[in-house]
Computed example of a mutant assay.
Amino acid sequence: MVRLLIVDDHVVVRSGLMMLLNGKNNIEVIGEASEGDEAIKKALELRPDVVLMDLSMPHGKDGLTATQELHELLPDIAILILTMHDDEEYLFRAIHAGASGYILKNAPHEDLLAAIASVASGNAYLTPSATRVLMSGYLDRVKNGDTPDTLALLSEREKEVLEWIAKGYSNKEIAEHLVISVKTVESHKSNLMEKLGLKSRPELVKYAMKKGLLHFE
């Protein structure tokens, strides 16, 4: 069962999403929130598998800020952005904030169900137009000799975990150093591999060395 928290400032939208999603494709809607602070509070209380997050919530904390804070507090929770903004800037900011997926509000219902299933299983999901934006932007920068810095995709905590991995510490040792759980370390490691397109610990070590992240006292 995929436990889902819905975050949107419009009551009608939340109600419609609950009616559409609850009980479908093994989804259970366990809560709702109207703005970012409430979303964080509910997520800490209910521990959903997926948070379906709107970006524009003018009467409280916005979705991007809430996404970043939630990703830092609860890295095991997948955050799927559901928005009307088919815009490159919002897309990149959402990914940088730690979102696992990005889908538009005008997407077919089947696509939304597929997106929730995808991020719940630990994979990323991008709506087709978002994928085209990413590929187009990447190719343009490469063509101009400006390869995007993948470090910009990592949170500060992920960079910390990456540095400890590169120094040869085990997950348990990293957890003790950073005063977090082993499960959280493993989640950060998984996020690192997904964001950087790497598949093993040795690849993470090589990447850290290449980026100059190894700092020995």
Rank of each mutant, 00 (worst) to 15 (best):
A107G: 11
A175T: 07
R47C: 09
D8H: 05
A120H: 07
N22G: 00
L82C: 03
A208G: 10
V161Y: 01
Y90I: 09
E158G: 05
K206M: 07
R132Y: 05
E194M: 13
T83N: 08
S190H: 08
R14A: 11
M57K: 06
A124Q: 11
T83I: 09
M19G: 12
A114Q: 12
S170N: 03
N123K: 15
E89A: 09
V12K: 06
T127I: 14
D62Y: 02
A124C: 07
I40D: 07
D49C: 03
F216P: 02
F92M: 10
R132S: 13
D9C: 05
L46D: 03
P148E: 04
D111E: 15
F92I: 14
L139P: 02
L198K: 08
K167E: 10
G23P: 06
S118L: 00
L178F: 11
K41M: 07
G137V: 03
N26P: 01
L82A: 11
E173N: 01
L192Q: 04
L113K: 04
V51D: 10
H109N: 14
N191E: 11
P148M: 09
T67A: 07
M18A: 13
A208E: 12
M1P: 12
E89Y: 10
R157F: 04
M84A: 15
H85E: 15
G63I: 02
K211I: 07
H177F: 09
V51S: 09
R157W: 03
L80Q: 13
S200P: 07
R201V: 14
S34D: 14
G63C: 05
D37K: 15
K172L: 14
H71G: 01
I165Y: 01
Y90L: 11
N171H: 04
S34N: 04
E160F: 03
D62L: 02
T83S: 09
M57S: 02
S129G: 06
E69G: 01
I79W: 00
N26C: 00
V7R: 03
V51L: 09
E176D: 13
Y102V: 10
L151E: 12
